[in-house]
């Protein structure tokens, strides 16, 4: 009966793989829980609504950007222009708003501008076959200048009771609008990744681009869509940040967010070489990273200690998860 022996061997193989996977994942989550537990123990007033609120608000831009970045990385690419796109979208919205275009057109204009940036990225990457890191580097450098050019000056601010500022402070059923948008975005991305043809095509391109072409997947369109999606999420993050702070700082808006977003995706377990998009992992990663800053602040630690702390957590998670 070599046949039955074969199938049982396969089954055993599969179980073993699954177990290893579990060990790795549990390892990661228990490492994170442990480190959080320890810090919570030593942090006075850590377990409070204030902390949660504070963390989630801080996590908002990182999470939105990281969700987009998850899709980009799933397709085997990378986008380091996310911060600049936040700035461009914020600047467009701010410019429109200050020239009395009204709230809705201002927001829509910002999102449209973000989408166009994504289209630019996606087209250069898929059509001209330039490496994603270089294309998005160009946009990262040029984009911040463009944002200031659009705005006409490095920064503007709005009056405290302007409708854009009210939008930023708006609460739905007692929840800040940022948290509502966050929940909606996560739900949407979970749906996209689990249920849509688009996400499967993205994963296929990330897993084996040659095979994806030969199976008839429209690589040009799919890649462009991935970068557009990512940029729109960045745009929303940028505009909401502008609304929350009541001003546009085109030189500083979203600066270095690409680092936090990439770190969040890495903690979440989406592979750097493309393939499965792990939305849930990204969410956890995107909450952990600002949490570190919040905890550091509550402990009266300096920013740079938080930086070292972040580095240790990212390296720690990846050392636990590594495949030997």
């Amino acid at each position: 009966m070599p046949n039955s022996a074969n199938t049982s061997a396969l089954g055993a193989f599969r179980r073993a793989i699954a177990q290893r996977q579990n060990v790795r994942n549990y390892g990661v989550w228990s490492f994170l829980l442990l480190s959080l537990g320890v810090t919570a123990w030593f942090t006075p007033g850590f377990l409070s609504w204030g902390t949660l609120d504070n963390t989630l608000i801080q996590a908002f831009p990182v999470l939105l950007v990281a969700l987009g970045m998850t899709m980009v990385m799933s397709s085997g690419g990378i986008d380091i222009s996310v911060g600049a796109i936040m700035a461009i979208a914020g600047a467009v919205s701010g410019r429109l708003y200050t020239s009395n275009a009204g709230l809705a057109p201002s927001v829509a204009g910002g999102i449209l501008a973000g989408g166009l940036c994504g289209l630019f990225n996606g087209t250069l990457i898929s059509k001209f076959k330039i490496q994603p890191i270089i294309v998005t580097l160009v946009v990262m450098i040029a984009g911040r200048g463009l944002a200031q050019t659009i705005l006409g000056k490095p920064s503007v601010s709005f009056s405290f009771n302007s409708s854009l500022n009210v939008l930023g402070q708006y609460k739905i059923a007692g929840l800040p609008i940022q948290i509502v948008i966050m929940i909606a975005a996560v739900a949407m991305m979970l749906f996209v990744v689990k249920k849509t043809v688009f996400a499967k095509h993205v994963e296929a391109i990330g897993d084996n681009p040659r095979a994806a072409r030969l199976v008839g997947i429209n690589i040009l369109r799919t890649t462009a869509c991935v970068y557009v999606l990512c940029s729109i999420l960045c745009a929303v993050a940028g505009i909401m940040k502008v609304a929350l702070t009541g001003g546009v700082n085109a030189a500083g808006l979203g600066k270095f967010i690409e680092l936090d977003a990439i770190a969040a995706v890495a903690i979440g377990g989406t592979s750097f070489s493309g393939g499965r998009a792990r939305i849930f992992g990204t969410v956890i990663g995107a909450v952990i990273i600002p949490l570190v800053t919040v905890i550091a602040g509550m402990n009266d630690m300096r920013d740079h200690h938080a930086m070292i702390f972040k580095a240790v957590i990212v390296i720690g998670v990846l050392l636990v998860r590594r495949e030997r």
């Binding site: 990378i78 938080a306 930086m307 390296i315 990846l318």
Partner: peptide, 18 residues
């Protein structure tokens, strides 16, 4: 450590700057 270079050095970029 078997960590992809991009993310390993990204973390180090933060850590070393700290």
């Amino acid at each position: 450590g078997g960590i992809p270079p991009f993310i390993a050095t990204l973390a180090m970029m933060l850590g070393v700057k700290g």
